[in-house]
């Protein structure tokens, strides 16, 4: 019997830690599956992974939760600021009955969630030297956020003036002053050399960044239990390792950025958290959140 072909489309670059994780998965399941990894959004355009899976034209995808939320509004809860406190909380939530509920909604849309894939905690990175302790301090600061209204709202929720801009143009825009800042996990700040054109990193930790590694529901249901087990355990092992590597890297980079002469400090996170959660609860996003889910997720934090 021929091995099933699994084409995975992701937006991560070839030298990303996650690309290594996908290669490890492909290697680990090679006896059971012919898994082909297409990184850099070369196979399907960014944001089209979910519809491609739904239409049966793609087997696996690394899907942004914002993309899922476009179809399943309840999922916007996991894209909101200050929901998860760290990577462990993220994993605990997806392992809990809350995760089961979210995954069931995705399954109804034809997507089987294999794992949340952590890629770093988003921190505010600014060119101006102004000290930022409260969300009010970010008022009037033009901050680049990824395009789309969920992302732009995230910027508003921490008090900034969000503006969309292509990722490749952020460096120049920071340097020329077209924007005052941007938000990304520390490894991204390092890879894109943003630290050269900014003066400070405010450890707001406003969003635990993650994508969802998913496979076609129809395909998954057609697998034998052994095949499911093979794939799931390969995913679990590789993603656990990848998460740990991201955490180690982030810890390392704090010192690196300090050595580069940046101010790296923690603001009043409670103030940010209260401000953001209030903004979200007043927004149209919260209207679609299942009752009590925020509290249940909060309860899962250690």
């Amino acid at each position: 019997q021929e091995k099933p072909t699994l084409r995975l489309s992701s937006v991560v670059s070839e030298n990303d830690i996650r690309a290594e994780a996908f290669a490890e998965i492909a290697e680990a399941v090679s006896d059971s599956f012919d898994m082909q990894v297409f990184n850099g959004a070369t196979l399907v355009a960014q944001g089209s992974e979910m519809t491609s899976i739904q239409r049966g034209n793609l087997e696996m995808g690394l899907i942004a939760p914002q993309t899922i939320a476009e179809q399943i509004p309840a999922w916007s809860i996991v894209t909101s600021a200050y929901l998860f406190s760290d990577a462990a909380h993220l994993k605990a939530t997806f392992d809990s009955d809350v995760g089961e509920e979210l995954n069931a909604m995705a399954a109804d849309a034809g997507i089987h969630v294999l794992a949340p894939v952590y890629f770093g905690t988003r921190q505010v990175n600014l060119a101006p030297e102004k000290e930022i302790m409260k969300p009010e301090d970010l008022s009037g600061i033009t901050m680049r956020m990824p395009g789309g209204d969920a992302w732009q709202f995230l910027g508003e929720a921490i008090g900034a003036n969000p503006t969309p801009l292509a990722y490749a143009e952020v460096y120049t825009a920071l340097q020329t002053g077209a924007i005052d800042g941007q938000d990304n996990p520390l490894p991204n700040d390092y890879n894109m050399k943003f630290y050269e054109v900014t003066s400070q990193i405010v450890l707001t930790g406003h969003l635990i960044g993650f994508d969802v590694l998913a496979i076609s529901k129809e395909l998954w249901d057609g697998f034998t239990p052994e095949q499911q087990e093979t794939l799931q355990s390969a995913v679990d092992a590789a993603i656990a390792k990848s998460t740990q590597r991201h955490l180690d890297r982030e810890a390392e980079l704090v010192q690196f950025f300090k050595d580069e002469g940046l101010k790296v400090y923690e603001p009043d996170r409670i103030a940010f958290r209260d401000f953001a959660q209030k903004k979200y609860l007043e927004s149209e996003f919260a209207a679609s959140w299942p009752d009590g889910m925020v509290d249940r997720i909060n309860a899962l934090a250690e």
């Binding site: 009037g140 033009t142 395009g147 789309g148 209204d149 732009q152 003036n161 969000p162 503006t163 969309p164 077209a178």
Partner: peptide, 10 residues
């Protein structure tokens, strides 16, 4: 809106 008004739109 971004440069003059400092209130970017998307």
């Amino acid at each position: 809106m971004r440069y003059v008004m400092n209130s970017p739109v998307g």
